[in-house]
Structures are given as structure tokens and as C-alpha cells.
Simulated scan of single mutants.
Amino acid sequence: MNAYLQHQVDPVVRKNLDFKLDQIPRFWFGGDPFRTRMFDALSLTFPVGERYFIQSVRALRDRITDNELQQKVTDFIQQEAQHGLTHDRMNNEMKKQGMPVDDFVKFMDDRFSYLIKNRSKQYNIAMTAAAEHLTALMAETFYSKKETLIDVHPYVRALFAWHAIEEMEHRDVAFDVMQEVGEVSERLRKFALTFITIQMFGFTFYRANVMLKHDGFNRLERAKFAIQGLPWFFGQKGTLSAMSSSYKDWFKADFHPSQHPVIRQYQTWIDALAETDDPIAAGEAFWQAAL
């Protein structure tokens, strides 16, 4: 781990952050239903997904002998728990809008419970480490350029900024647990990222489509949304396409998450939160400081 300390930041547990999610409009991404529901669909995953990550790491905790890693695991668990609680609040707002949140959550909960009970600890920690790599890259990608989220409501932008900051702080924890005590083969490690990527984006698109149906859009309207909206995410110049090089680094034999620098304006968010004690103000400063 010491070889990568220049790009590591310590996880910090932050509680009771208020993002005023009950005040955001229905289509908070500049009035765009498709982009809004794609991000909403991603948010739906977090509470159940974070619990799965916690369980996967906790299952190997008794093998860890390094005190520093033990502390990082403690902080990781607490950060992920806070993410779950906060995204639960966002998901409750979707539920008020008539979205089938309970059905989505039950499906995901059943799926993750099955994995914990029926898959090996090696499989689950590999999936967790891969998912953490993917979400950290997404955090970097969405906030590295100011124009990317320019149309997003400031409260939601602040929520995802906070989540992005903490993903970067603990991006290496599950990976280090996997490498130190997980006994995960290179084949499984590499497979995990490919599989989790297909799963994450496939289910995100599916849930977004279902939510748009509940918004009252017919099949043709939803098809037009997808044709027009997906290139923003995955097109040749798409937002997520921009992270392809960093994404592929995972498949190198000597890869470690902390080989990637932390986002340039990380300290801006830290300082703004310390000065204002307001996560919305910190999120705005963080976004404003992007290129």
C-alpha cells in the first residue's frame, strides 16, 4: 500500500448532512426526464448496494492483521452506511412521485442476499472492489468538467458531490482487503469489473425506462428519449466514454486504485465544508472549481 500513498486520502465519516431533497423538482436535470431518471435509477441501487459492500468487506475482516487497514475498513463501513441512509431519502422522494421503489429495492435486496449466502467470500469481495473502482471513476468523470452537470439542480449536484468525495476517499479499501486477505484470482478480479459494469448499467437503463413509463411517457416517447439521451452517457464523446482509459487500467496485473490521482478540486470541497458546515455550499464550490 505504501507505494501509492501520494494518491491516497483518508476516509472521513460525515453524518447528518442535509441536502434538502424534498425541495428538488421532479426532473431535476435541466428538465430532462431521461437524464434525471438515469441518475435516479442509479441512486436506487445505492442503499442496498452499499449494504452488500459492507457485508462483503466485513466477511473478511477477521483475517486482517494490519491496523491501518482495519481502521480504514471501519471508516469505509461508516461512510457506506451514511450513503445508504442519504440515498434512502432520495429514493423516498421518488416514491412520493409514484415510482415503484419498493419493487426495485426488493428485487435488488433478494439478489444481493442470494450472493452473500450462495457465492464465496472471494466472489463478493471481487465484485465489491470492482464496483468501488467503477463508482470512483464515475465520480471523477462527472465532476472533472463543469459543463457536465451544469443543468443539474444544485441540491442534487451537492448530494452526488459528497458521495463522489467519499468514493475517492475509500476507493482502495475493498481492493486492499481483496489483495491482502481475499485470495482472489486474477481471472476473477478481471471478470468482476466486466460483469459489474454490464449489470450496473443494464439495470440502470431498465429501471429508468420503467420510471419514465410511470411518469406517463409512452413506448415511442421512451424510445426517443433513449436514442437521444444514451449518447450523452455512452457515445463517442459521451461522459462515461471519457473514463475508458482509466477503466481499462483495472485489467493491468499491477493495478491499484490509488495509481489514479484524486480529483483536482478535492481540497476545495473539504475546505468549503469546514468553512460553511453546509454540504450544499461545499458541493457548489466543488462544482464551480471544475475545469
Rank of each mutant, 00 (worst) to 15 (best):
H260C: 03
M127I: 05
A242D: 03
N124F: 09
A208F: 00
D109C: 01
E68R: 14
Q8P: 05
V181N: 12
N124R: 07
H260V: 04
Q78D: 13
A242Q: 01
R119I: 10
Q6V: 13
L212V: 04
Q265Y: 03
D102E: 13
W28Y: 07
A41R: 12
R207E: 03
H214E: 13
L21K: 13
I270V: 15
W28N: 06
F142E: 06
A208V: 07
W232P: 04
E140T: 07
T45A: 09
K95N: 06
A282D: 08
I196K: 01
G202H: 00
A226H: 01
H87W: 02
S244C: 08
Q8T: 12
N91A: 09
A242P: 03
I77W: 01
L240Y: 13
A223N: 10
F19M: 14
F53L: 11
L149I: 01
K146D: 08
A164C: 15
P47S: 01
N124W: 03
P33N: 06
Y155V: 10
I227C: 00
T36D: 02
P231E: 08
T45D: 07
K224F: 08
N16W: 06
L220T: 11
R14S: 13
T239C: 09
Y123G: 04
T239F: 05
L212R: 02
D75R: 09
V13M: 01
H133Q: 03
I165L: 12
F255C: 02
I125K: 07
Q6W: 11
P100Q: 04
F19Y: 13
N67C: 02
P100F: 03
Q82S: 06
L60V: 00
Q267P: 03
F175H: 14
I280L: 02
L5Q: 06
F175G: 11
Y123Q: 12
Q228Y: 05
V73P: 11
I77Q: 08
D277K: 15
T239M: 06
A130Q: 06
H163D: 10
L212Y: 08
A130M: 05
A223P: 04
G182K: 15
L17D: 08
Y123N: 10
K15T: 13
G31Y: 07
F39I: 11
H256N: 00
